[in-house]
Nucleic acid binder design. Structure first.
Lengths: 118, 118
DNA sequence: TCACTCGTACGATAGTCATCGTAGTACGGC
DNA sequence: GCCGTACTACGATGACTATCGTACGAGTGA
């Protein structure tokens, strides 16, 4: 094949204008999903679903990634057998400037506060 | 009685350190509750529950205000028969600097975008 | 072709949630 | 004391959700 086709399979994503703040907040209100997004942003690169060692089964993992994708928080694309995930930072920053950074900062701050047990 | 007691009834609130980001996001992921918080911030003053003209029954209104209170987003206090509501801006700003402003800005932006239909 | 890995689809289940109606409590004014 | 207003508590209900297990599909490499 000629170019950038990931594979044959395509996944449905909301276009930028279909992303809703409420859906984004709902997606991020789940601890596991918030953690996934934090790691995705920390790595600043595409990560496979299997990269994450989550305390749930594969079925549940699939579910959480789908919620993130359908809410517009992440973009998913197949590369071989792996499904790669990346935060839709450009779209989110365009729609809600500064929101993602504030959310990540808030999550970091809380993690530091709760983790350190101060 | 001597001073500032609102009335006899007191309502349970989480203290600052008990406020969790996930709970805040969950509370604000509901359109009605997000709207309530937006109005509370816009008025910059305490507002009674009855101020809001919500398309749900009083029971449901009570439920939504309780979720906001128990997540730490708002503070509620009785004044006579009225229950006054105010956003806990100081606590939220201390815990998650800039988050509330980003969320409100995002909500405003989305409202303008969807309302204007541009 | 065969096996292996990664992820999906489906069905089930237990829990949470938004909603309502009704009945009840607390406060303020008459 | 009595009534009206503001809000609550309780029970019910339908919808959604997080979770799982099992069975399956799609791709990679031997």
């Amino acid at each position: 094949m000629t170019s950038t086709a990931a594979t044959s399979r395509d996944l449905p994503h909301p276009v930028r204008d279909e992303i809703r703040l409420e859906a984004v907040l709902h997606a991020l209100s789940e601890p596991l999903r918030l953690q996934i997004v934090r790691e995705l942003c920390a790595e600043a690169d595409e990560l496979a679903c299997s990269y994450f060692d989550l305390p749930v089964t594969k079925s549940t993992t699939t579910h959480h990634f789908r919620v993130l994708r359908e809410s517009g928080v992440i973009r998913q694309v197949y590369r071989g057998t792996a499904k790669m995930n990346a935060v839709r930072r450009d779209d989110l920053d365009e729609l809600f400037p500064g929101l993602l950074d504030s959310l990540l900062a808030a999550a970091d701050r809380q993690a530091a506060r709760l983790g350190a047990g101060g």
